[in-house]
């Protein structure tokens, strides 16, 4: 089947097999930030934005992205760097494998919430597992990022 997907602002038209997973489709098109961690929608590593909403690309067919806009971290390098610097300043990126999915979801969170509470942050990001950091450093990074953003306004 032929699909057309807008990946990070660029239209891609391709004849795909019907069972192709969105994650594999995106990696095939150079979006290597999208990682597979579990195959069962539990870890959040494969989070991408589909028409602005975070989705798990490991559990979605590429066909479902036909006609949609997909954003991966490759297309959000400025935001990734801005927020990622706060993570890096904590040393909380550690192995880094979960970072792209986590940061995608953080970007999505801040598009929905101006000033999320601690509980809202934890709930929003509950599906983003990290085995290295124990989450505390990620939380410090989010809080410092929010404080700086507030100060800048």
């Amino acid at each position: 089947m032929i699909i057309t997907v807008n990946i990070n602002g660029k239209n891609v038209t391709e004849d795909i097999e019907a069972d192709l997973i969105l994650l594999d489709f995106l990696r095939k098109h150079g979006c290597y930030s999208v990682k597979r961690g579990c195959e069962t929608s539990n870890c959040g590593l494969c989070t991408v934005l589909m028409d602005e909403k975070p989705v798990l690309s490991c559990s979605m067919l590429a066909a479902k992205a036909d006609g949609k806009n997909i954003m991966t971290l490759e297309g959000l390098q400025k935001e990734a760097e801005e927020f990622g610097t706060f993570v890096a300043n904590q040393g909380a990126e550690q192995c880094g494998f979960c970072n792209p999915g986590f940061i995608m979801n953080v970007i999505a969170m801040f598009r929905e919430y101006e000033n999320p509470t601690d509980e809202e942050i934890k709930e929003y990001l509950a599906g983003n597992l990290c085995r290295c950091s124990g989450y505390e450093g990620q939380m410090r990074a989010i809080k410092k990022f929010m404080a700086e953003r507030k100060g800048a306004k």
Partner: peptide
Amino acid sequence: KPIMKKDAMSLVTGKPVY
């Protein structure tokens, strides 16, 4: 000193390093 990891910015911006 709490120096940033040398690979940190590549990791947080999702560079293809694995």
